[in-house]
Design a protein around this nucleic acid. Structure first.
Length: 623
DNA sequence: GCCGTTTTCGGCCCGACTGTTTTCAGTCG
């Protein structure tokens, strides 16, 4: 029987996939299998922990989770077991589910291996199976052969290496890997263009593998095969393994265990490829369903007319041939699109930016022309959370660059203003009077340069620790020497929801508090965020004119995108900051903007898109 | 099992690659 340790998304995903596998193996209703797989996909790509979503009573808002799966998860979270799940899982030996974690082993192969080799009760399925493979027993099974046997042994080895590591990468890391491969590919004379797609193009908080599309010119190729480019790709110097390599696509693993998927397309159909390979999977499924309703079958090459729109009730059927846009090549039956915008237009949808292609309700809203204009980096007028090297004896780490250097960088980034928010002076070893002196001295220091810089104005901020009891790690009198405060939790992360919420709300009551810094405290891959009563926080901040920070630091990306979208319903405002500790890190604004975009934020939802005077007014206006 | 500007019933995306196969099943994205 399954063992759950921490109810992480990873564990729940695997649980749901296991149930899907049982349904598939028992083969009664394949749509039930699909339903569980869809639910698993949804949990896997959720930007927050499913258990937190459940605790907020919003589990049914996750697309793909309905009455039965939702109530079973409810039981599971509450009592540690679900009778319904248990009864399904009991139909198949547990080692089957373990084996399915290995690449190239799906439900059917896992089931065959476990039952035929008599490993139903194996405690160490990977070791046992590997041993069987080394003894040649796998190859003897029907429909398996020598190659499959080798493949399985290799896959087990890889799985064991990989499972020891964090399996999703921070975006900058994935981008670096992608860029190296892109540069390599661009050296090939037939390659016209290379794009990183998939979760990288959607700017997901963490990246599983790297998806690349290559555009080639037909006349430069002999015939229609892209074999020569595939061959070049699989010779990539850092490749450690070729997963597969066919006519149209290939996958390699590069050191230290990152998968790169490649697809190739000519210019005429490149828009379709961009769309398909950007995903998400859930978005593509919904888009294809939508296309079907319009009478078209959609794939990665284009659209095929299948019939008149199936709906008899449709009152004003637009007959497809008259449509503008697209790149109809009717002679070949498939309509190609060189341009992604035209593809969406052709199926009567507003263009949908990659960041929100997550299969929530973007298709429905695009039909109604209700996709908002999302905020862009160019809209950002200032960064209000940067750490300089000015030594105010901070409680946490100091920055690397001086005020002047950071202002210069801000100018380079075309900002109108910059807000310094070093950590508050440490409270141990310094008495209140000393702290106030330090703050005053710093105030005067910044005052000196405040107007020296003509183009970039600066604000005097501070990032103050929220202590466990909700008070700030700063004497009230010291607040006189700042323009605003960002308050953040840096300790005692394990309070319960109620205590944590009270703690934060109390801190937000202090004068000059204008932002809640990295609101969940999460560190991707290291630490889960703490829980808050978001309804209360959102409502409080909206009422008090306090912004929630969207922290651009790639390991934070905090507030998470799904919460950002939720906050919009409460009319919360956000402030996107880099939390930079060096000038170079100030360039990371794009990461935070991406979170905001994934959270459906427009320019007016982001407070630091205001120009200097409007922003200053907002800063001084605490209702 | 899920889901709904057409629906609370009756549908449910689409294709590439590999290995073991002479036509397809399994896995993956």
């Amino acid at each position: 029987m399954y063992k759950l340790e921490n109810y992480s998304n990873k564990e729940i995903t695997h649980l749901l996939r296991s149930i899907a596998a049982v349904h598939q193996l028992k083969g009664k209703n394949r749509f039930r299998t699909i339903a569980y797989e869809n639910a698993a996909d949804a949990v896997e790509h959720l930007s927050r922990e499913i258990k937190d979503v459940w605790e907020e009573g919003k589990i049914y808002q996750v697309p793909g989770i309905g009455e039965i799966i939702g109530s079973s998860l409810n039981e599971l979270f509450k009592q540690g077991r679900s009778k319904h799940f248990d009864s399904i899982l009991a139909q198949v030996p547990t080692p089957v589910f373990e084996l399915m974690k290995v690449r190239s082993i799906g439900p059917k192969r896992a089931y065959k291996l476990v039952t035929i080799l008599g490993l139903d009760h194996s405690d160490n399925i990977f070791t046992d199976l590997k041993k069987a493979g080394e003894e040649g027993k796998i190859a003897e099974i029907e429909n398996f052969g020598k190659k499959s046997e080798q493949e399985i042994i290799a896959a087990i080895n890889l799985y064991r290496q990989r499972s020891a590591k964090a399996d999703r990468m921070p975006i900058p890391y994935a981008k670096r890997i992608a860029d190296e491969v892109i540069n390599y590919l661009k050296n090939h004379p037939q390659v016209m263009r290379v794009d990183a797609l998939g979760s990288l193009r959607r700017w997901e908080a963490t990246i599983g593998d790297v998806d690349l599309a290559v555009q080639v010119k037909r006349e430069k190729l002999n015939g229609k095969s892209y074999k020569n480019i595939i061959d070049y790709f699989i010779k990539y110097p850092k490749k450690i393994k070729v997963e597969n390599a066919g006519e149209n696509k290939a996958s390699i693993i590069v050191s230290p265990n990152i998968r790169i998927d490649l697809r190739i397309q000519e210019e005429a159909g490149y828009g379709s490829m961009l769309q398909y390979f950007t995903g998400s999977k859930a978005h593509n499924i919904k888009l294809r369903e939508h296309a079907l309703a319009e009478g078209f079958s959609l794939n990665e090459y284009g659209l095929k007319k299948i019939r008149s729109p199936s709906t008899s009730l449709r009152t004003s059927p637009k007959s497809p041939p008259q449509r503008k846009g697209g790149d109809p090549r009717n002679n070949s039956q498939i309509m190609e699109f060189s341009n992604e915008h035209r593809l969406y237009e052709f199926v009567d949808l507003q263009y949908i930016p990659p960041e929100i292609r997550e299969g929530t309700n973007e298709i429905e809203l695009a039909q109604k022309n209700q996709i908002p204009k999302l905020v862009e980096v160019a809209d950002i007028k200032g960064d209000l959370h940067v750490h300089s090297s000015y030594n105010l004896q901070p409680s946490h780490d100091l920055g690397e660059n001086t005020y002047e250097e950071m202002l210069k960088k801000a100018k380079e980034l075309k900002y109108q203003y910059l807000g310094f928010a070093e950590h508050n002076p440490k409270t141990s070893g310094l008495n209140e009077k000393e702290i106030i002196e330090i703050m005053k001295k710093r105030y005067l220091e910044i005052e000196k340069i405040r107007d020296a810089e003509i183009k970039v104005k600066c604000f005097i901020g501070l990032e103050a620790d929220i202590l466990p009891d909700g008070s700030l790690a700063l004497p009230e009198k010291a607040i006189d020497y700042v323009d605003y405060l960002v308050v953040s939790v840096h300790s005692a992360f394990n309070l319960n929801v109620k205590a944590m919420t009270e703690r934060v709300l109390k801190a937000l009551e202090y004068p000059k508090v204008k932002a809640l810094g990295h609101p969940t405290g999460r560190l991707l891959g290291k630490r889960e965020g703490f829980e808050l009563d978001w309804e209360r926080i959102f409502n409080f901040c909206a009422r008090k004119n306090i912004a929630l920070e969207i922290n651009s630091w790639p390991q934070r990306l905090d507030l998470p995108d799904t919460l950002a979208r939720e906050g919009l319903r409460h009319e919360v405002k956000y402030i996107i900051n880099t939390d930079a500790h060096a000038t170079q890190e100030m360039e990371g604004m794009r990461y935070g903007v991406s979170v905001a975009r994934r959270g459906w934020c427009g320019r007016s939802d982001i407070i630091n898109t205001l120009n200097y005077s409007a922003f200053k007014k907002w800063l001084n206006n605490k209702s």
